[in-house]
Design a protein around this nucleic acid. Structure first.
Length: 353
DNA sequence: AACACGTGGCA
DNA sequence: TTGCCAAGTGT
C-alpha cells in the first residue's frame, strides 16, 4: 500500500508497467516490446482498426480487419476500390456511414496527401469519419504523440478512479480533464492503449476485477465500493416497434432483384430487398404485380432506436422485367448473402428453410 | 443538445 | 425475452 495521494506521473508509470506484461495482442497492434525495439505501427492499419472499433467489439472486428487488409493492403488500394465492393465487405459490421466515410477518407489521403496520413490531431479530425476520439487515438497510437483518448473505456475508468457520480454525458468534460491530467509525455501511444485495455479487461462495466487492478490503491470508487455502478448514465428512451414488407424476387435463371439504398439514412449505401416504408401501419408496395407468396415467418430485428418486424413475400421475376433506377439484378453466382446488411440477410435466410 | 445510426453477445 | 453494452461520428 502506498500513501495517498499518488502523483499523475506515478499512476501512468504503474499502468505502463502493467501494460508491459498484460497488453492484449491484436492484428493491428504493435505491442510494447516490439515498439520499444523501434517497430512503428502502420497508420493505415491503425486508422482502419479504429474506425471499425467505433461502438464495435474487438471480437467482431478481427475477421473484418483481416479481410480488408488482405484485399486492400494500403490506403491507395482502398481508395481505388469500387464503392459497392467496400460496402459489401463491410456488410454485417453495422453503422454503415463508417464505410462510406472510410472510403471518402481513403480517397482524400491517397489523392491529396500522397497516401500519407496526417500525424497531428488537427489534421486527422478534419477527415471524414474521424472524430475527437479517433483523431486522438491515431495521433497517439500510430505516431506516439501525447494526445488524450476518451472512449467508453476511459470514461468508465476515470469515473471510477475519481468516483464521479454525475451521469454521462454531462460529466464527460470532467472525465476528459482527469484523463488529460494523466496522459504522460513518455510513451503516450502505449499509455492510450493501456487505459483502454484496463477498461476492457479489468475495469469492466459489470463485476470489475478490482483486486488485480494496477490502480486499486488510488481508485476512489474501489474504496467506497461504488465501482460497479459507475459511470452513471441518463436513462434511455424505450424503443418503438415498426413494421414493414420486403419482396424477394428471383428470375427463372435464379437472378435476384435488389436495390441500392440511398447514401443518407438507415443502411445507407447498402444493398437491400425492395420493400415498403417501415412504420406503425405500412402499406404493401410490391416492385411489380405478381402473385406474392408469404414466406410464413417474419423477420425480427432490433436497430439502435427501434424494433422492426418484417413480413417477407416472394415471387418469380417476369422474364421481361426491366430494373428501374436504383435496382439491380444480381446473378445467381454473383449473389452473396454476406454482402447484405444483417436485417436483409435474415429475410433471405427465410427462403432457405 | 439530442438524436440517428447496426449488430451480436451476455445476464 | 429484454435490456445493456462495445475503441463514436455526423447533423
Amino acid at each position: 500500500m502506498r500513501d495517498h495521494p499518488v502523483s499523475a506521473e506515478q499512476l501512468s508509470q504503474d499502468l505502463l508497467a502493467w501494460y508491459d506484461t498484460h497488453a492484449r495482442e491484436m492484428p493491428w497492434r504493435v505491442g510494447p516490446t516490439a515498439r520499444a525495439s523501434g517497430v512503428r505501427p502502420d497508420p493505415y492499419r491503425i486508422w482502419l482498426s479504429e474506425v471499425m472499433l467505433q461502438q464495435t467489439t474487438v471480437a467482431a472486428v478481427k475477421d473484418y480487419f483481416e479481410r480488408f487488409t488482405r484485399r486492400w493492403p494500403r490506403v491507395g488500394d482502398l481508395a481505388a476500390a469500387e464503392d459497392g465492393d467496400v460496402m459489401a465487405e463491410w456488410a454485417g459490421l453495422g453503422y454503415y456511414a463508417r464505410a462510406r466515410n472510410l472510403l471518402k477518407c481513403a480517397r482524400v489521403v491517397a489523392e491529396e496527401f500522397e497516401g500519407v496520413f496526417p500525424d497531428a490531431y488537427e489534421g486527422l479530425i478534419a477527415l471524414p469519419g474521424i472524430g475527437p476520439y479517433t483523431a486522438a487515438a491515431i495521433s497517439a497510437i500510430a505516431f506516439d504523440r501525447p494526445e488524450t483518448v476518451l472512449d467508453g473505456n476511459v470514461e468508465r475508468v476515470m469515473a471510477r478512479l475519481h468516483d464521479e457520480h454525475e451521469p454521462l454525458p454531462a460529466v464527460k468534460p470532467v472525465l476528459k480533464a482527469h484523463a488529460a491530467h494523466l496522459t504522460p509525455s513518455a510513451r503516450p501511444g502505449d499509455y492510450a492503449q493501456a487505459v483502454m485495455d484496463l477498461g476492457a479487461t479489468i475495469c469492466t462495466p459489470k463485476s470489475p476485477a478490482c483486486g488485480i487492478c494496477p490502480w486499486r490503491d488510488p481508485c476512489r470508487a474501489r474504496v467506497k465500493g461504488t465501482a460497479p455502478e459507475l459511470p452513471k448514465k441518463t436513462p434511455k428512451k424505450p424503443k418503438p416497434t415498426r413494421y414493414g414488407f420486403v419482396y424477394l424476387a428471383r428470375s427463372a435463371e435464379g437472378d435476384w432483384l435488389l436495390e441500392r439504398r440511398p447514401d443518407k439514412g438507415l443502411l445507407g449505401g447498402m444493398l437491400g430487398w425492395p420493400g415498403s416504408e417501415w412504420n406503425d401501419a405500412p402499406t404493401e408496395t410490391p416492385p411489380f404485380d405478381a402473385d406474392w407468396q408469404d414466406l410464413g415467418a417474419e423477420v425480427r430485428h432490433t436497430f439502435t432506436h427501434f424494433h422492426l418486424i418484417l413480413q417477407v413475400r416472394s415471387a418469380e421475376l417476369p422474364a421481361d422485367f426491366e430494373p428501374r433506377a436504383g435496382q439491380e439484378l444480381v446473378r445467381r453466382h454473383d449473389f452473396r448473402p454476406s454482402s447484405l446488411p444483417t436485417v436483409m440477410r435474415k429475410a433471405f435466410d427465410l427462403t432457405r428453410r
